[in-house]
Amino acid sequence: MKILVEQSLDCKETEIKITCGLMDERLKRIIEQIRLFSFSVTAKKDGVTLPIALENIYYFDTVDNKTFVYVERDVYRCDKKLYELEAQLVDTPFIRISKNCILNTSVVTFVRAQLSGRLEATLNNDEKVIISKHYIKDFREKFEQRR
């Protein structure tokens, strides 16, 4: 695979162009990673609307039908429903881990089994989230894809 980087001070917006024959699994993974670093989610806090880069988001959580975006040390409100986000985040490191949470698997540092049959994931910021029994299989497969 040839990587070509053209640097110019005249360039206003970074553009990534992929020229390929058939799209294979490796290329798909590269595109997933590019998507992760190029997408953002619009969120609100204290009346201010701002875009949050996907790679900075730890997880999305729903409480009383309201969706919240959790970053390392802050929480924002998001207008999108969890199912809408889930559909948009296909082929990214994000995965549904419970009825009301979508987690960025790239911020998981450790996973621990609970007696109740659930998993407890520790994140980069030492926060802990619970993976429901029903979602454990998909969660595990997300990590297996990394091999």
Binding site: V108, T109, F110, V111, R112, A113, Q114, L115, G117, R118, L119, I136, F139, R140, F143, E144, R146, R147
Partner: peptide, 20 residues
């Protein structure tokens, strides 16, 4: 047995995280 199945699953995920 159910608990140890989950422990095994957690160990596999942790190995995958360490590799990263």
């Amino acid at each position: 047995i159910g608990y140890f199945t989950i422990v095994d699953c957690a160990n596999k995920i942790n190995k995958s995280i360490k590799r990263k």
